[in-house]
């Protein structure tokens, strides 16, 4: 019974960690390419949640098709938001900060007007448990975890080996030099925003059947995403993955022993401890 509890806490932790990583990746990607931080990034997650509510709960659409739809719709929104709002504030941290705070309020209020302020629930598409070596696993949580891992791996392969992924890295390392190779820096910034928004929306779809959907659900994952990228190192994708796993496991295990407010503090305590030793985060470089 004791080991059952511990293993479930670990599985839960890894799942939550991977979902946070999906949110964090977009944040860190956009930061490394545009040197701006989008505080409204959590709202892409929230919109993913509503996509799940309308397509799965209302229309009965397939779970994975819903993910694809959320990526397309919210990704396109991200692309447009970069083009219309953030482009003039490239490399202007403060200007972009103010724009993104405004965007948080606009998107949350728009969601309240459009979807109402009541919490909505999305039925679980995968009921049942899996019994492995005498330990029970929730099928749904396994699917969420595996889907998130697959997406993180896909993003890594895209950044590492595709032409546009290489262009993203080039812009992150030296945007002027990238432009001199013929890379359209503005288009790459839009692409980074779209990819990041799509990933955050996917996280929102994945988690919607486990939690409720409301206009303000983006607030928590954005905080977790910040903890993760500061922990792992700003701009580093492996860093985000590592940070997400550490935070997820710490919260998962911590939830056995600690109250919920204490668990939420845990991430901040870890960040402070890591920054004291490694000011650039675990895998960050200058």
């Amino acid at each position: 019974m004791e080991s059952q509890l511990l293993i479930q806490a670990l599985v839960n932790g890894i799942m939550l960690g991977m979902v946070y990583v999906l949110v964090a990746l977009g944040l860190t990607l956009v930061f490394s390419i545009m040197e701006v931080i989008n505080f409204a990034h959590g709202e892409f997650y929230m919109l993913g949640g509503y996509t799940a509510y309308y397509l799965i709960a209302q229309l009965g659409l397939n779970y994975f098709l819903t993910i694809a739809a959320a990526v397309v719709v919210v990704g396109f929104l991200g692309w447009m938001i970069e083009k219309l709002l953030f482009r003039p504030f490239r490399k202007d941290l403060l200007g972009a900060f103010i724009v993104s705070l405004g965007l948080v309020w606009v998107l949350q209020s728009a969601a309240m007007l459009a979807f109402g302020s009541l919490e909505k629930s999305v039925p679980s598409p995968f009921r049942g448990v899996l019994k492995v070596l005498g330990i029970y696993f929730s099928l749904e949580r396994l699917i969420v975890t595996v889907t998130a891992i697959v997406l993180v791996a896909a993003l890594y392969l895209f950044i590492q080996f595709s032409r546009e992924g290489r262009a993203m890295r080039a812009v992150a390392q030296d945007s002027d030099a990238a432009a001199l190779q013929g890379i359209n820096v503005a288009r790459i910034s839009s692409l980074a925003f779209a990819v990041g928004a799509g990933l955050a929306a996917t996280a929102g779809v994945l988690i919607a059947p486990l939690f409720f959907v409301s206009p303000f659900i983006g607030d928590l994952p954005i905080v977790k995403a910040f903890i993760i990228i500061i922990l792992g190192g700003m701009g580093s994708i492996p860093g985000a993955l590592l940070g997400g796993l550490i935070l997820g496991l710490a919260e998962g295990v911590g939830s056995i022993f600690l109250s919920i407010p204490a668990v939420n503090l845990l991430g901040f305590v870890i960040v402070m401890a890591v920054l004291l030793v490694r000011p650039r985060g675990l895998l960050g470089h200058a």
Binding site: Q173, A178, Q181
Partner: peptide
Amino acid sequence: RRLFPHMTVLENLKAGAYL
């Protein structure tokens, strides 16, 4: 110089052929 310092020599050359 303005290379892409964290990319390999080969990746830098491929970036030059981006278009």
